[in-house]
Design a protein around this nucleic acid. Structure first.
Length: 423
RNA sequence: CGGGGUGUAGUGUAACGGUAGCACGAGUCGUUCGGGACGAUUUAGUCGGAGUUCGAAUCUCCGCAUCCCGACCA
């Protein structure tokens, strides 16, 4: 039975709705407020968060959606170290030039870096695997904690200094092969965001490529909490990040000239790295003719915590979170209304066991010291898709009350039918 | 990294330079019991360090923390 205090936030929330921040004009992300109050995350310090049981369950759901899609892209999952030697970062010049790099000292004054990204690890690794054109293409991915010493952490969980990221690195023998893979990955990325419930608000967005290429592609989700401004082509829905917009007065894809301006959060970013990191580590392969050539690389990232926060930014109302079923911590929030009649508890318990047996994930609120109103309010805040209430009233009709979080009306369902309608 | 704001109990908030108070939470008892119930009772606090003063939560300086704006953002 899941009723730990970690699941049920004990703080009494403000009753005047979730006016973000105070009257002084300070504003912070709604997702941060909701996630903290509902007990999904806990802040340790600026830009560093713990994921509590509910939040961790969501994080794992998101991870599994991404993993499934990366396997679809022929990715092989590994886990690389976060603690890195200085030398690798010197080779690429980033030890001195990357201002967000966390540096630390070990025994004997030895220098280490905490990896903010993993080219400096994956390329030397690939060097031990890739020798021939027969070894290509190759895709390697991981879910790893990244460390970035952001000058300013902000927007709650949306911009942190330590965060879980999926990063996939692809290795190709030709530019053309990278291009093909890159286009395929754009589709796969859009599918990930769709599966996470933010597909309608997420746009492929042309952006600056940083120092490696002219452009990169971002996946921007439109929300007021966003840090970026994007221009969405009214015709083909391709978006352009404000940072490169002056260069494009018409849509580079369809040629139309009308755009919607929106604030957005960058939920993912993909790059054509080319030989930027192959060169410093001398990553080469032999082609069919025996000639030595540089390996061409691509890089594909998604920040999981930020994605989680973005999902909340998109899916909430004035009562709390409304989780899409695909990433909800549980499918069903089973609430037992306290009663003197013993059969209420027994029946609720039976329903709980029955649902679990059917493979349905249930959070069972059987606390005896909480009023119905309090339980309902917390259920709304937590945002689990189905609320199932067992009480004297419902049992009198051999039923339970089922209410979906994203709907306004509840209905009575015969207990025997319950498992069938929960989808 | 520049600018600004804020640090009071677990949380949220009051207190003119003069007895640190209230609400929520948590504990106990009783009454409630389908939309954040009620009474009684208990618990717990001025970010740290210097200074001014008869006296500092309050004023000054330093530090630390956090939030916001900007810059930055593989």
């Amino acid at each position: 039975m899941l009723q730990s205090k970690l699941f049920y936030k004990t703080d009494k929330p403000a009753r005047s709705g979730f006016a973000a921040g105070d009257a002084g004009g300070e504003k912070s992300a709604i997702s941060h407020d909701l996630l903290a109050r509902a007990g999904f995350v806990d802040q340790l310090m600026a830009g560093v968060y713990s994921f509590l049981p509910l939040g961790f369950l969501v994080l794992q759901k998101i991870e599994n959606i991404i993993r499934k899609n990366m396997l679809e892209a022929d990715g092989q999952e590994i886990l690389m170290p976060a603690l890195n030697p200085k030398e690798n970062w010197q080779k690429t010049g980033r030890w001195d030039n990357l201002d967000i790099l966390f540096k630390l000292k070990g025994n004997g004054d030895k220098d280490y870096a905490l990896a903010p990204t993993h080219e400096e690890v994956v390329v030397p690794l690939a060097k031990k695997i890739i020798f021939s054109h027969k070894d290509l293409p190759l895709s390697i991915f991981q879910f790893q904690t990244k460390f970035r010493n952001e000058l300013r952490a902000k927007s709650g969980i949306l911009r942190t200094r330590e965060f879980l990221m999926k990063d996939l690195y692809s290795f190709h023998s030709t530019e053309r092969d990278l291009d093909k893979y890159y286009d395929k990955m754009i589709k796969i990325y859009m599918n990930i965001f769709k599966e996470c419930g933010i597909g309608k608000n997420t746009y492929q967005t042309l952006a600056s490529g940083g120092s490696f290429s002219k452009y990169s592609d971002e996946f921007q989700t439109t929300t007021e909490a966003g840090e970026d401004i994007i221009y969405i082509c009214k015709k083909c829905k391709l978006a352009i990040n404000k940072e490169i917009k002056p260069e494009n007065s018409v849509c580079p894809k369809c040629g139309a000239g009308e755009f919607d301006e929106k604030k957005a959060v960058e939920a993912g970013n993909i790059f054509k790295l080319g030989t930027k990191y192959s060169l410093p580590f001398d990553l080469k392969f032999r082609d069919k003719d025996g000639h030595e050539k540089d390996v061409i690389m691509g890089c594909f990232g998604i920040g999981l915590g930020r994605l989680l926060g973005t999902i909340v930014e998109i899916n909430h109302d004035d009562k709390g979170i409304i989780w899409p079923k695909s990433v909800a911590p549980f499918l069903v929030h089973l609430i037992e209304i306290k009663s003197d009649k013993k059969n209420i508890k027994a029946t609720a318990n039976k329903i709980y066991q029955e649902l679990k047996k059917n493979g349905i994930q249930v959070l069972y609120d059987d606390r005896q010291d909480k009023s119905a109103g309090e339980k309902f309010a917390e259920a709304d805040l937590m945002g689990i898709p189905f609320r199932v209430v067992v009480s004297e009233k419902t049992l009198a009709k051999n039923s339970v009350e089922v209410k979906e979080r994203n709907k306004n009306t509840a209905r009575l369902i015969k207990i025997k039918q319950l498992s069938k309608i929960l989808k």
